[in-house]
Amino acid sequence: MYEVIAFYTFSLLTIALFGVVVISKNALYSMSALAGGMIFIAGFFFMLEAEFLGVVQIIVYTGAVMALYAFGMMFFDTTKEVRERVHAQKVIYTLAILVAVCVVFIVSGPIVGQKMQALYPSIEGVGNIQMVGLLLFTKYLVVFELAAIMLLVAMISGILLVSDRMNLDLTLKDEDDKEREMI
């Protein structure tokens, strides 16, 4: 019974918060709701006894949404409302609703048809982390390593894009100039 209560509480909270993310025009509200929603999703993992994934969800999204806040801080005045210029509203809404309905069918189809089977059912007595590790380093090794390389590529290109004046230390340079002027 408690699981049912927890499930409905978390689902309501998550849906409400993600609703705020989409509807609100204030960047600060949206980002805070996003952070909250991402953390509430971890609750579902805990209910499914996938504690490791739940904790990873919390850790990863804390840092990720935090970085998003940093961008929000740099690009917007977060206290004012953001004005969106939307053309062809009807088309966008129709497409979005259609896609959402499709996703619901794709996900819930196998559950309704009862054709869902675990390819790698969890073994009794083997912990969460061990199972994830086992699958990552045997069955999904190539995918795992490729994803790592992709992230590395993204990181290096990111550094390259901003590397114009990386050899100059900004804070030290300012002070040097000021000191020279003073002399």
Partner: peptide, 28 residues
């Protein structure tokens, strides 16, 4: 008593950094 105790403690404790962040961004 969850299996990933230490990760949970560290992860949730670092969520606490949202408090100063939100406080700083909401007070103009």
């Amino acid at each position: 008593d969850i299996n990933v105790g230490i990760l949970f403690v560290m992860g949730v404790a670092s969520v606490g950094m949202y408090a100063p962040l939100l406080a700083g961004m909401s007070s103009v």
